[in-house]
């Protein structure tokens, strides 16, 4: 069951406790347990005891409804992109995207593949990119720290960008997803 009403444009309501909100959000980033490419393997040492990302309040959640962060961990095929869009739209605001590896930036070693996207930013809004092929868990931690910093400063506004420019993203998505059967929006 989902609601397919197009979301309203976000309004900036400068609440007094906004800073406090951001601080709280930054320190409890919950990830949707969803791996799209080879980088998903780097998340295993990250959430187990070797690097133990719970030190930073980062945890894996089984459903998008409970989480804040979606990690695009590497190459993204068109078929997966469709699922990623559904997952991303179901995450509650505010939501962030962490993109790992060369593939999400400009196609990486799959730049000439017939079925993987090259520029992730065209289809969903990315907040932080982590360079590497794949980035080591330490680099992913650095990516999270950067994301936290950005959230605390109130600059991680990819989710607002997505809502404001929904037509732009939809157009790009529809261009490459040929059998488009997604609802207008899925909450």
């Amino acid at each position: 069951m989902y609601c397919n009403k197009i979301p309203d444009k976000p309004v900036d309501n400068e609440k007094i406790w906004k800073k406090l909100d951001d601080l709280a959000r930054a320190n409890s980033l919950w990830i949707t347990a969803y791996g799209t490419g080879c980088g998903a393997i780097e998340l295993r040492p990250l959430h187990t005891s070797r690097f133990d990302m719970e030190r930073f309040g980062i945890a894996m959640r089984p459903t998008p409804r409970q989480s804040d962060v979606l990690i695009i961990s590497g190459y993204l095929s068109v078929k997966t992109l469709k699922r990623v869009i559904r997952v991303y739209e179901q995450i509650q605001d505010p939501k962030y995207i962490l993109a790992l590896g060369s593939c999400t930036i400009d196609g990486g070693m799959y730049f000439d593949s017939y079925n993987t996207i090259n520029i992730l930013d065209r289809y969903i809004p990315v907040d932080v990119y982590v360079n590497g092929c794949m980035p080591r868990p330490e680099a992913v931690i650095d990516g999270f720290i950067l994301l936290m910093k950005k959230i605390k400063e109130g600059k991680a506004v990819g989710w607002k960008r997505y809502k404001e420019n929904l037509e732009y993203y939809r157009k790009n998505q529809r261009e490459i997803i040929r059998n488009w059967d997604l609802p207008d929006y899925n909450w």
Binding site: D106, I119, Y129, N131, P135, E138
Partner: peptide, 9 residues
């Protein structure tokens, strides 16, 4: 060095 994160791709 292996770690480099950025906002701007």
């Amino acid at each position: 060095t292996y770690s480099w994160s950025t906002f701007n791709a």
